[in-house]
């Protein structure tokens, strides 16, 4: 059994792997990491070898190897859905990665420094609207009018949201506009990098169909859905652990 742990800016994800995902768990990356990791291990069960990745990979003291998150994402994209490109929309940034046939990184590019294309942005906005994160897709699908959001700043975009609420716009239309603005950023990033071919979208934000569908409409190539996209990097890490220590 191999464990992949991805310590992201917002969430820490863990996957127990044995040729397939055996179990998985997610915790907020908050406060003291020891207890975060302890909780995760409690949820996920026993493992033999572990690989960590993500911005806080170094904090996982029981990991025997560390691997870059772009590498883990590339491996997961190739092994799980056989994709040539990955568009990862994480807690704070958007990364485009092109992947070779063996699952190695050919090139990658991260977006302009701005948190508004991120999962954190979506969280802030939905909470301002009083929409639970799980309800975002359903709400956005009910939109009947296209609105625009323009602000670069995640917190200031909130004042745009309040303006709309004030003008009597429906929550559904507003959350759809928020999803749109994230999708647009992701599309610009993909186009800048030249994503086409068979591609997948990973990261926490990829859970939201209202965003992935908008992206898929706007960029060429064949979109293939990643199962449990938030776990992609931790799956990649687990595969790294298996390759490193497994007796295949």
């Amino acid at each position: 059994m191999f464990l992949g742990v991805d310590v992201g800016m917002r969430f820490t994800k863990a996957v127990l792997w044995d040729g397939k995902v055996v179990s998985a768990a997610i915790e907020e990356t908050r406060g003291d990491m020891e207890s975060v990791l302890k909780n995760l291990r409690g949820k996920i069960g026993d493992f033999e070898h572990c690989c960590s990745t993500g911005s806080g990979a170094g904090l996982v003291d029981f990991a025997e190897v560390k691997e870059d998150d772009v590498v883990c994402l590339a491996i997961a994209a190739r092994d799980i859905v056989d994709a040539d490109f990955v568009l990862d929309i994480g807690g704070q940034s958007i990364t485009a990665i092109s992947v070779d046939k063996d699952g190695n990184v050919i090139d990658f590019m991260r977006n302009d420094k701005c948190a508004s294309g991120s999962g954190r942005f979506l969280e802030v906005m939905s909470s301002a609207l009083g929409i639970a994160v799980e309800e975002i897709d359903e709400a956005a699908s009910k939109a009947d009018r296209k609105l625009s959001t323009t602000s670069q700043c995640a917190v200031f975009a909130e004042s745009e949201v309040v303006s709309y609420v004030n003008e009597g716009e429906s929550k559904e239309n507003i959350i759809a506009a928020v999803c749109d603005s994230i999708a647009k950023l992701a599309v610009a990033q993909a186009n800048r990098f030249g994503i086409g071919g068979r591609y997948t979208i990973t990261g926490g934000v990829a859970k939201f169909k209202s965003i992935t569908e908008r992206i898929a409409e706007a960029i060429g190539g064949e979109y293939v859905e990643f199962p449990h996209p938030q776990l992609a990097a931790s799956i990649g890490a687990a595969i790294v652990a298996e390759e490193e220590f497994g007796d295949v």
Binding site: M9, T29, R30, G31, D32, M33, G56, L59, Q92, A115, S118, R120, F121, V124, C153, A154, V155
Partner: peptide
């Protein structure tokens, strides 16, 4: 200066 990036800084210090 950005609230969200400052949050990252805070988390880093805590870690």
């Amino acid at each position: 200066r950005c609230s969200i990036y400052a949050e990252t800084e805070v988390l880093h210090y805590m870690q």
